[in-house]
């Protein structure tokens, strides 16, 4: 359903993502593993359109997204939760979520958001910038979800978040996926989190895919060797 083939991405003049192809089926979850600086964020930014692709293609359900601006990709069904959350610090929680309602039929926040993230309802009127890291992460996920995505892209959602909240986020993501039926593409360094949400794994090393495996046959030691320096 979500198909990337032969993607090359440059960051300025440096050649970062080299000939990456991947495929994400409906309701599947793909984890992109790799150490810092191996190109995970660059790959994900290219998928949402924050960085241009030099060559290759990105398609969602037959629609070519490769040359579209970010907002057109969102309209087509891709949603993005960036590294560092990037919530709007001066907007309150409710307004932050509402920014994602651009293309949805209803202009009010769907009720499942507060059902899955009750803390966001409590903090409704608080400025986004005053939330804790974990709360901001939930806010960023909620903001992405209200766009009704077919593919939810998350860039290192566990970064800087305490372990108990990491577990909670994994559980919530799985429940949300079951109920709403979207696919997930997540980049991670924390293997335990990835194991909990993903059924497909790829490992990025210096911008190339060096390992690709389904969860059932995954050799954990092998993946760990790619993640340690």
């Amino acid at each position: 359903m979500f198909e990337v083939s032969g993607l090359d991405v440059y960051y300025g003049e440096s050649y970062i993502i080299r000939n990456v192809s991947l495929s994400l089926p409906e309701k599947g979850t793909l984890a992109v593993m790799g150490r810092n600086g191996m190109g995970k964020t660059t790959l994900l930014k290219a998928l949402i359109g924050m960085l241009p692709a030099r060559s290759g293609s990105i398609r969602l359900g037959g629609v070519d997204l490769t040359r579209l601006a970010s907002y057109a990709r969102v309209k087509a069904g891709v949603a993005f939760v960036p590294q560092g959350r990037m919530i709007f610090p001066m907007l309150n929680v409710q307004e932050n979520i509402m920014t994602g309602l651009e293309y949805s039929s209803s202009k009010s926040i769907p009720s499942y958001i507060y059902r899955f993230f009750p803390v966001l309802q409590e903090m409704k009127g608080r400025r986004g910038g005053n939330l804790s890291g974990g709360q901001q992460q939930m806010l960023a996920i909620a903001r992405a979800l209200v766009t009704d995505p077919k593919v939810l892209i998350l860039d290192e959602p566990t970064e800087g978040i305490q372990p108990s909240i990491i577990k909670e986020i994994a559980r919530t993501l799985n429940d949300l996926k079951r109920e709403l039926g979207f696919s997930i593409l997540v980049s991670e360094q924390v293997l335990s989190f990835a194991m909990e949400v993903a059924d497909q794994f790829i490992v990025l090393d210096r911008g190339r895919i060096v390992h690709e495996e389904a969860k059932e046959s995954l050799n954990i030691q092998r993946v760990k060797s790619f993640l340690t320096v």
């Binding site: 949402i48 359109g49 924050m50 601006a69 970010s70 907002y71 969102v74 309209k75 949603a79 993005f80 960036p82 990037m86 709007f88 610090p89 001066m90 907007l91 307004e95 920014t99 994602g100 651009e102 293309y103 903001r143 992405a144 766009t147």
Partner: peptide, 16 residues
């Protein structure tokens, strides 16, 4: 208000 705070992120939540 969203675009003036973070233009790139606003586009990534669907704002033209």
């Amino acid at each position: 208000r969203a675009v003036t705070q973070n233009r790139a992120m606003s586009a990534a939540v669907g704002i033209n």
